[in-house]
Design a binder for these strands. Structure first.
Lengths: 207, 188
DNA sequence: AAGTTACTTTGAAAAGC
DNA sequence: GCTTTAAAAAGTAACTT
């Protein structure tokens, strides 16, 4: 009987220790990414739910924590790419993506794929572009969505292309290289996407 | 002609995976030395890889005598390819079951729905809890069907991949169901 | 800038770690 | 879970020319 109690206490301790570790891990990653408190809280909620549903079994605490943070960013409309999460995590991008898909399904998060529009504010500020450039980029992306120019394309690449075009239209031109670096895509991708957008949306670009 | 039938006509079997057994243990070391073009690295993988050129297939031969055949474009090619593998093994002095049972384990097929798709709308239409669509990670939308029990990958181009089926008819039924569901949602 | 190669996803079997 | 095989879809990436 005494052993039973000791075992329970031991399990409880282990559970709490793991939770404490996970929460500190979430905080560490969130700090490294400069994420606000509400996202840390959201990620903690997602992580606790995962624990409650025993989704940690067979998975690393860090993997689930990284996936929870990735999910939290998306839930709050301020997505980080898997690459960005992976940079501050000890887990690979591949495992974070896999774990995210798993907990997303198990917890019924039902998140729509990330919209390119959600990346505009962050990418624009990274390029020191003003609000006018942002709203113009958003408008381009709205039209792009209507004309089916986003199906299957990476959200960051489409957002980068829209910002590239917008920066030129607003007379605050940024090079493809600058936009590519901020968005984390290659110049080739920006080129492919912006040509497609310009063509289909009848936007004249004078370089 | 209905869109479902049009789409069915575009179905192409791209790969067939099948398993069988010769009913005899095999010394992979000696078979490797006797067969030209045989790849065997037990440290990396327990199976010996043997490729046939016509039909183009790859056979994984195991110590237990079990064999996996992949790469065939049809069930007939699986049989033809395995016949050649059996002859090769027999030519090395190993007894081969004259009537090995061959089981198709998976069929991968591609098809074309004929028009572009709005994957975002399809994701909502089919229900976010029933699909997986993460364009950041992969351009295709993943849709799992219960009957036939297959997985369908839908692309923005209207092309699709059906995998997980055990017979050609599984792919046909899957395409028919997809077309009808999308038509029902007015997304095709 | 064009070309090539390669990696992402899905499914299944084999024997063994 | 991983390892190996094959093949398609379309996007993205990393090299070479």
């Amino acid at each position: 009987r005494l052993r039973k109690w000791q075992r329970r206490i031991r399990v409880s301790n282990a559970t709490e220790r793991n939770l404490a570790f996970a929460l500190s891990e979430l905080d560490r990653m969130a700090s490294a990414l400069g994420l606000p408190r509400n996202i840390r809280e959201t990620s903690a909620v997602v992580y606790r739910k995962a624990v409650t549903k025993n989704l940690i079994r067979g998975r690393s605490i860090e993997g689930v924590a990284a996936a929870a943070l990735y999910a939290a960013c998306r839930q709050n409309g301020v997505p980080r790419t898997l690459d960005e999460i992976a940079e501050v995590s000890r887990v690979s991008r591949k495992e974070i993506g896999r774990t995210y898909r798993f907990i997303s399904r198990e917890l019924g998060l039902k998140l729509m794929p990330t919209s390119p529009i959600d990346y505009v504010p962050r990418f624009c500020s990274g390029l020191n572009l003003k609000g006018e450039v942002q709203s113009r980029a958003v408008e381009i992306l709205r039209q792009a969505a209507e004309k089916e120019l986003t199906s299957g394309r990476g959200p960051t690449g489409v957002a980068a292309a829209a910002i590239y075009i917008s920066s030129i239209l607003c007379g605050e031109r940024r090079t493809q290289r600058e936009v590519a670096n901020v968005a984390g895509v290659t110049e080739v991708t920006i080129r492919n996407r912006y040509k497609e957008l310009a063509e289909e949306l009848d936007i004249e670009i004078i370089l | 002609m209905s869109k479902a039938e049009e789409a069915k006509k575009t179905i192409t079997i791209e790969n067939v995976v099948a398993s069988t057994a010769i009913g005899q243990e095999i010394d992979l070391k000696s078979v490797t030395l006797a067969l030209e073009g045989a790849d065997y690295d037990p440290e990396q993988f327990p199976g010996l890889v043997y490729r046939t050129k016509d039909p183009k297939t790859a056979a994984l031969i195991f110590r237990s005598g079990k064999i996996v055949c992949t790469g065939a474009k049809s069930i007939e090619d699986v049989d033809r390819g395995l016949k050649k593998v059996f002859k090769k093994i027999a030519s090395v002095g190993i007894k081969v079951d004259p009537n090995p049972e061959i089981t198709v384990q998976n069929i991968v097929a591609s098809a074309d729905l004929g028009s572009v798709l709005n994957l975002n709308a399809i994701a909502i239409g089919l229900g976010l809890e029933n699909i997986e669509y993460e364009p950041e990670q992969f351009p295709g939308l993943v849709y799992r069907l219960d009957s036939p029990k297959v997985v369908v990958l839908l692309f923005g181009s209207g092309k699709l991949v059906v995998t997980g089926g055990k017979k050609p008819k599984d792919a046909e039924e899957a395409v028919e169901r997809i077309v009808k569901e999308l038509e029902g949602l007015a997304l095709l």
